[in-house]
Simulated scan of single mutants.
Amino acid sequence: MIITDTHTHLYSEAFDEDRAEMMQRTLDANVSRLFIPAIDSTYTASMLQLEKDYPEHVFLMMGLHPTHVKENYKKELAHVEQMLEQHKFYAVGEIGIDLYWDKSTLAIQQEAFRHQIKLAKKYKLPIVIHCREAFNEIFEILEEEKAEDLFGIFHCFTGTLEQAHQAISYNMKLGIGGVATFKNGKIDKFLNEIDLKHIVLETDAPYLAPKPYRGKRNESSYILKVVEKLSEIYNKREEEIAQITTQNSKAVFGV
């Protein structure tokens, strides 16, 4: 059984003291495909090091995270483009809009999102979307930019059934992680109405640990709890959940 974690920040400082052990637990759990989203230029070196240390298992993305769209965002976007020119990446991400932390940066977040969508089209890469309290704003831009060559993943999907269908209509898979195991997570109530072909698995480690680890540091091996939950929701064997969602991730990332 091969499991794919389509979104995990394994270079995070949260793992600095035991990264090797955590990675071993992950690989021992058959979580052998790990897709790594970018945040900003300060993490690029540690991402590249992670890829060097685990070349068969780690696949990098490049992008500017919406909560890191600040006064210097044009310089950061130039770094994203420079890296896309110089190095092999598997997606532009994570990108999007976040209105939970700071609504005052909406205009530059929108500009950065649009710019990075255009980069994804230029480099023929999928996008990985971060959306927090910003579904309308994200959908507005996806509607403007929609095209055959725009596709990707709606990371950490926490919307309604209607929003799920809308995201899928823009060629997006839904990234499902620990939230599906939460009592008040809500998405578990309608996920079985979404065909499994639209779903990929993720942890967003070190954040959003699934039950029974909720509130603790998340790690990629904990994705087994998400597989378990989806096995219940879809009434399919865990091996089948792993196989279908891994196949879906290959359709997105091309690897």
Rank of each mutant, 00 (worst) to 15 (best):
Q49S: 13
S12I: 06
I194D: 10
K189W: 14
Y123I: 04
I129N: 00
N248D: 13
E144G: 01
K103A: 13
D28R: 10
A147Q: 12
H57S: 12
D18L: 09
V80D: 00
H9I: 04
Y43M: 07
K211R: 15
P37S: 13
K70Y: 11
H155K: 07
I108N: 08
Q247T: 07
G159K: 05
L224R: 11
N218Y: 04
H115I: 10
V128L: 01
I129C: 01
E51R: 12
I176C: 03
G159P: 04
E162T: 15
Q166Y: 10
A45I: 12
F253Y: 05
K216E: 14
R214N: 10
G215I: 09
I153R: 00
I36R: 00
E137Y: 02
L34R: 08
T181W: 05
N30H: 14
M172A: 09
T203A: 02
E51W: 11
C131A: 15
A107C: 11
E137G: 04
Y54K: 05
A20Q: 15
S12P: 04
F157K: 05
R25I: 07
T8E: 11
G159Q: 14
K216F: 14
F139I: 01
I153F: 10
M47P: 01
T42G: 10
N136I: 09
L10I: 13
G152F: 01
E21P: 02
C156T: 15
K146H: 14
M83I: 06
H130G: 03
